[in-house]
Design a binder for these strands. Structure first.
Lengths: 338, 338
DNA sequence: AACATTCCCGCAACCGTTCCCGCAATTTCG
DNA sequence: CGAAATTGCGGGAACGGTTGCGGGAATGTT
């Protein structure tokens, strides 16, 4: 069975030449007699020779493998990004190994450590919701590892980044609800410490401000993306003296949950309460009424992150290159607001 | 920067001992003076030594990396399986590199070839819908590679397999529709050549037969999972002299599409037409009415496939071990049939 | 005190490949 | 026609580890 893989030494022995010559025939095009090379190639095919990339990697000190650290591959958002990364880098002969942090900062750290041991050539990372300590990734950076981060980034690190258009997303959706005649718009926000979360809240605030609507902090609820928190937020809003007539959310799953709750309560969507989401998840077009949502292109984010990584690997950038691509999205208007 | 990684030789030089001693201190617990080992460990930590797994892999002829070849990571089904695999094997120190075939048999072949070159230790594979030629994977098997396949399998290959309960799934859903009083049940099936597809059609047939309902081949439409084909199938059924009063499908996306089309036509669900799906996708619980669907546990499939692989790697099985786990699912009944 | 035994450690080979260096044979050129 | 340049190939070091073997010192046994 798998007792002995064919090596260049085997080829050399069979042909009665040295392994250096075999190596030259298979790689370097110079300093080799065409007939010799032909003989080697023929014998290589005959023996079904497969070069051992581990040995090559040992010499070159590279594995042609990239580590991709994400919270959860089962989220459509991350799955699409992984897909984009894989398609992009595999064309240049890179492989990706994926590790899930399951939203645990500790697991994120462990994963990065493990990937370092297996000598990946670079890292593409999206941090946990709760990652506050960025020492592990700064260490990576200080060791000179090519590093790209996306979506949930560490702003102070001078590395390429790819993010969604958090600000504009909420700015656009909020403005849209205002244009639909809504006067009092609530916001179902994300965790406070998350940068993306802050940006989205800002987009919401600026849109209100530009239309002369006062900001009311009673209308903003920060969540950790948990279902119960959504229900609680809705209860709170409905019990206000002046309840809202529209709700923006920073994630579709929350918006979907809201729509379900509102329907159960018999509150008419969008007339009594408009709802808008963020992400344009598959669910947005399935639920009824359709969910107005700011569509992003996670696959594109993956492609861009992959390209950044390839550029880093090819040393196209100076050492401390800090570039950031903000992926523009677009508002998909559906029945929940129209 | 990344000029020179610390090696055991560096440690040896600093301590004035030989590299074999360092190696023994770091691995072998025997034949080493405790003080020496302590000194080595201390120095290793001090220099932040990271063992080079490539070098180790070269010696052991293994990479502790598994190749996972799937059609499309963006499908929730595959994403969940990948998640299960990753969680299972990473606890034993294995990494997974994923490659997408995008449902192209050629790409599937190329991916496997590329993964072979990078010396993965084993393969976990789900074939393309259109894979008819299994030579590439038989080659893998004949070379002695640990091999596990799932969902879309090659039945003749004596390797561990993990599949959904295709037969029972459709048997159960069909029977359920019959119990709901449906007399004429159509079937939206998958591609003819797919084994899983055949099994599901059989489940449907047997359920009909056991309840004395004649099989009518006009009521069965084979698709390649395309949306237009769903619409065409529905048209055809509705134009029959005796249209069906219930539809079973072999995939949720098709069932969801059917529900949407039926609603657009004003046909009452489930009274005039019941619908059932397969897979219990997230969409099934979001759409209205809720979609009755045979729930499978893709994450579990991944876990089992991962365990099979670990067993193979540990040589727990004889060479031609051919085991198959059929993952039982359960029918989730919702408004589309009740 | 002489010998056997144990215990640490260093030497060197090895995994599969690349690549530099040098040697011999052939070709080029004055 | 002889020196120089070129060409094709083999030898061997290197990449970063592991491991069998053997040597020398310390210890144990009569």
């Amino acid at each position: 069975m798998k007792n002995h893989q064919v090596t260049i030494v085997d080829i050399a022995r069979e042909l009665g030449i040295s392994k250096s010559t075999v190596s030259r025939a298979l790689t370097n095009s110079t300093n080799i007699l065409p007939e010799t090379r032909a003989a080697v190639l023929k014998k290589a095919k005959e023996l079904d020779y497969q070069p051992n990339m581990l040995a090559l990697g040992l010499i070159r000190n590279e594995s042609r493998t990239l580590g991709v650290v994400i919270p959860d591959i089962q989220k459509p958002f991350f799955a699409a990004i992984v897909s984009g990364i894989q398609h992009t880098v595999s064309r240049i002969g890179y492989r990706i190994v994926i590790a899930q942090s399951d939203e645990s900062p500790l697991e994120e750290k462990e994963n990065i450590k493990a990937l370092m041991l297996s000598r990946v050539d670079g890292f593409i990372v999206c941090h946990t919701r709760d990652t506050k300590d960025f020492e592990h990734i700064k260490l990576l950076h200080s060791k000179g590892y090519p590093l790209v981060s996306f979506a949930r980034i560490c702003p102070e690190l001078p590395i390429p980044k790819v993010v969604e258009d958090d600000f504009n997303g909420l700015y656009t959706t909020t403005q849209h609800l205002i244009e639909q005649g809504k006067k009092r718009i609530a916001l179902l926000a994300g965790p406070r410490q998350l940068l993306a979360s802050k940006l989205r809240v800002n987009g919401y605030k600026v849109a209100l401000q530009q239309h002369g609507i006062p900001f009311d902090k009673e209308l903003v609820v920060h969540t950790k993306f948990l279902h119960d928190q959504v229900a609680a937020a809705l209860e709170r809003w409905l019990n206000l003296k002046h309840p809202p007539d529209g709700i923006c959310t920073v994630y579709d799953a929350g918006a979907v949950k809201l729509v379900e709750l509102l329907k159960k309560k018999g509150i008419k969507i969008p007339h009594e309460m408009a709802v808008a989401g963020f992400g344009d998840d598959p669910a947005a077009s399935i639920i009824e009424p359709g969910l107005t949502s700011y569509a992003q292109k996670p696959y594109e984010i993956g492609v861009i992150a992959g390209k950044y990584m390839l550029d880093l690997l090819n040393k196209k950038y100076p050492v401390h290159h800090s570039d950031m691509t903000i992926c523009k999205g677009s508002l998909v208007v559906r029945g929940s607001s129209r």
